[in-house]
């Protein structure tokens, strides 16, 4: 038999409201656990900078014992000037892009990194820093904020040892 008892209705409503409040609180707390900070933009800058200097380090390391490394060869070609310096551009493009695209093969790499490379050296006569453009990844007009990293290289320029700096500017498309 159904007991018809309609007392305690307010308590029932109160219980439902309390439940709703508790669930709303739980949702708000869980939702606000992830705090996105403005500084997070710098974290990807950091990673890009590390990637760039790692790529340059790999180019500055010989493949086998006794061999010359790619970056040094390229810088020497730049210091030779003329057709050698022009050839250095294409060689750097191939070598550097190979490094940037290096992956494990398990995932497809989204090729979103763009770069612009320059060689800097000191001109002895005028004692000023001169530069030689080592090419870029293509003709991008707009760009995201870029970071810059580089590597100092000992180069045999003619008979004298010199120091050049290969500098790359990296950004993501």
């Amino acid at each position: 038999m159904v007991i018809s008892d309609d007392s305690g209705q307010l308590f029932t409503i109160e219980g439902l409201v309390a439940g709703l409040i508790m669930m709303a609180t739980a949702f708000i707390i869980v939702g606000s656990l992830n705090v996105y900070t403005p500084g997070d933009a710098h974290i990807s800058d950091m990673q890009l900078k590390q990637l760039g200097s790692d790529a340059l380090l790999m180019l500055d390391t010989p493949d086998n014992y006794g061999e010359e490394n790619t970056l040094k060869e390229l810088a020497e070609k730049v210091s030779n000037g003329g057709a050698d310096a022009v050839a250095a551009r294409t060689e750097f493009k191939t070598a550097f892009e190979d490094e940037l695209e290096e992956g494990t093969g398990s995932t497809e790499i989204i090729d979103s990194i763009r770069y612009n490379a320059t060689v800097y050296y000191r001109d002895i006569g005028t004692d000023s820093i001169k530069s030689y453009a080592l090419g870029d990844s293509g003709s991008e007009i707009s760009r995201q904020p870029a970071i810059s990293t580089g590597r100092l290289i000992l180069v045999e320029s003619g008979a004298t040892e010199r120091i050049f700096r290969v500098e790359v500017r990296l950004w993501r498309e």
Binding site: Y120, Y121, R122, I129, T160, E161, F164, R165
Partner: peptide
């Protein structure tokens, strides 16, 4: 030469 190179490039770049 190396010394001058390094000092100048570090300062400039």
């Amino acid at each position: 030469t190396l010394e001058q190179d390094l000092y100048a490039i570090s300062m400039d770049r």
